[in-house]
């Protein structure tokens, strides 16, 4: 598998996780992060899923205040999504951050559900001062440690398990 992933960059490019867009939406009570994340599973990950291996991602949301020397994080939130296949019902189950279970007949439907992260709480407006510049950063990090133990060492070595997105940073428009 490693050999396939290393020898076939085309295949490697067909899967992965990308943040399409992100923005901060101003509600009356606070700010809400509106983002879209594109999940494309590798053949190996798809096979593991269909064999009953649950896959988990941590969607990390941060608001940063860029500085000259360092960039402090003034707000951060972690949203855990877990995707699992139920062979009996032939449905895909997504466990949302609020522990709510959603069942889907197709994998695409499940991934579409996951593509729009749902925050449990709004961001306090007091955190963001009007005169400061801020950045909104988001990434979806594949949680290898939730894989079965025998699979973990290979998940760190096999590119088909490289299912995390890089940090997507967007300036906050006020």
């Amino acid at each position: 598998m490693l050999l396939i992933s290393w020898c076939c960059p085309v295949l490697a490019n067909q899967f992965g996780v990308k943040v399409r867009h992100v923005k901060l939406v101003d509600n009356d009570q606070g700010y809400r992060v509106d983002a879209e994340i594109d999940y494309q599973l590798s053949p190996l990950a798809r096979e593991a899923l269909e064999k009953g291996v649950p896959l988990s991602w941590n969607v990390r949301v941060e608001i940063r205040r860029p500085g000259l020397l360092w960039t402090p994080v003034i707000y951060k939130q972690k949203l855990r999504y877990t995707l699992q296949y139920h062979a009996l019902l032939k449905q895909y189950e997504v466990k949302a951050p609020d522990n709510h279970l959603e069942m889907f007949l197709t994998l695409n439907a499940a991934l579409n559900f996951m593509s729009i992260p749902k925050q449990n709480e709004l961001i306090d407006k007091q955190l963001i001062a009007p005169e400061q510049r801020y950045q909104l950063a988001i990434r979806s990090q594949f949680h290898r440690e939730s894989l079965p133990a025998p699979l973990r060492p290979f998940a760190y070595l096999n590119q088909q398990w490289f299912l995390s997105s890089p940090w997507f940073i967007w300036p906050i428009q006020k």
């Binding site: 064999k51 009953g52 291996v53 079965p148 025998p150």
Partner: peptide, 12 residues
């Protein structure tokens, strides 16, 4: 599921 998972993880 357990059996499928074990089959998948056989080599691992």
């Amino acid at each position: 599921i357990r059996f499928q998972e074990m089959t998948f993880l056989r080599d691992s």
